[in-house]
Simulated assay, not measured.
Amino acid sequence: MNYQNQKINFYQKRTSGENISATFDFLKGNWRPILRLCLYILLPFSIIQGVVMNNVTSAAVDAAVHPPLTFTSLEGISPSVLINYILMAIFYMVGQSVLTAIVYTVMQKYHNSEKLEKYPLSDIKDDFISFIKQCFILMFYIMIISAGYFFVVGSLAYLFPLLLIAIIPGTIFLIIPLTLIFPAYIFGEGIGANKALKQAFRLGVSTWGSLFLLIIVLGIISGIIRTVTSLPWSIVLVTKSVLGSLNTHVAVSNSVLMDFGMYILATIEVFGTYLAGIFIFTGAAFHYFSALEAKDSVSVNDDIDNFEQL
């Protein structure tokens, strides 16, 4: 692994721009282990997810081009579409959990290493497995609290439509600090999901502006990567749909070659989406470290503890 000449100090007060720079510096020096883990674990996962995504989009396009004329025909396609949507949701949860575990495992190893040295991936296996379990737990926790939140605000919006004026910007305001829950939970040394949520909002609300700016900048970069990797698949999908809707005798739209090409491009699109998420997870972690240092002076407390042990 090629490290930088000087290690990045995680627990250091930084501005939003410095956190963005730290994100790029870290990824520049640690992209190899992150990419290798993504190739070993997420690429095979993306191949399977690409098949499901093609099924979902094909069913959606067919329904748009040839809408069912009766309730009977609608009932005939609904179970298949529903199953594929459920599978997509499951794949998304699992994939995002694995990606988070990959990024934060490498960050943990980097932070705990005393020297800028190379290491085999086998050295981080235990941490990686532990982080995957934690990410799965946290993902379900987020689903539960999100479902509860949207049920409450949805009910209020139904009863009092004018509340939408406050609910929409309020929801956006709350989502920004929520991005810190994963680093708070993973690097919080077993603080628990509830405390991680409180920690995320304690640090995220007080630094909302800089966190919002970081997410916007890294989100734009992630969006560019997603666009580049998804554009070929989108073009082929539209081309196949148009040719199919024209009812021509051209066999291209239904050819095995085009279907195979779509699966390959769908895999690239899914894998590219995961790679794009690396920037957000890494940036959120550096913002968490910075905000925690600013609030609690973690590095000073660690120095005091280390001094007392001498």
Rank of each mutant, 00 (worst) to 15 (best):
N2F: 11
N2K: 12
Q4M: 04
Q4D: 14
I20S: 02
F26Y: 11
N30K: 05
R32F: 12
L35K: 02
L43V: 06
S46P: 15
S46W: 05
I47G: 07
V51N: 02
V51R: 09
V52L: 08
N55L: 09
S58Q: 09
S58A: 11
D62I: 01
H66W: 11
H66V: 00
P67V: 09
P67Q: 13
L69W: 04
L69I: 02
T72H: 04
S73P: 02
E75K: 14
E75Q: 15
G76E: 15
S78R: 15
S78P: 01
I86S: 06
L87E: 09
M88D: 10
A89T: 12
M93L: 11
T100H: 05
Y104N: 09
Y104G: 08
T105N: 03
T105Q: 03
V106S: 01
Q108S: 05
Y110A: 01
E117K: 10
P120F: 02
L121H: 05
D126R: 14
F128P: 05
F131G: 02
F131N: 10
Q134S: 13
C135W: 04
L138Y: 06
F140S: 08
M143G: 14
S146M: 12
G148N: 08
G148I: 10
Y149E: 12
L156Y: 03
A157R: 08
A157I: 09
P161S: 15
L162T: 15
L164S: 08
I167M: 06
I168N: 08
T179G: 03
L180M: 06
L180T: 01
Y185N: 09
Y185S: 00
I191V: 13
A193K: 11
N194M: 10
K195N: 14
K195G: 01
A196F: 05
L197C: 05
G204K: 05
G204F: 07
L213R: 06
L214I: 03
I215Q: 09
L218M: 06
L218N: 04
I221K: 03
I221C: 14
R226G: 08
S230L: 04
G244N: 13
S245P: 08
S245A: 14
L246M: 14
N247M: 04
T248D: 09
H249G: 15
V252P: 01
V252G: 10
N254T: 05
V256T: 15
D259M: 12
F260L: 15
M262Y: 09
M262D: 07
M262A: 14
T267H: 09
I268W: 13
V270C: 06
G272A: 12
G272Y: 07
G272V: 03
A284M: 07
A284C: 11
A285Y: 15
H287K: 00
Y288R: 03
Y288P: 01
F289Q: 02
S290K: 02
A291Y: 10
A291M: 13
D296E: 15
V298L: 11
S299P: 00
N306V: 05
N306I: 03
L310H: 05
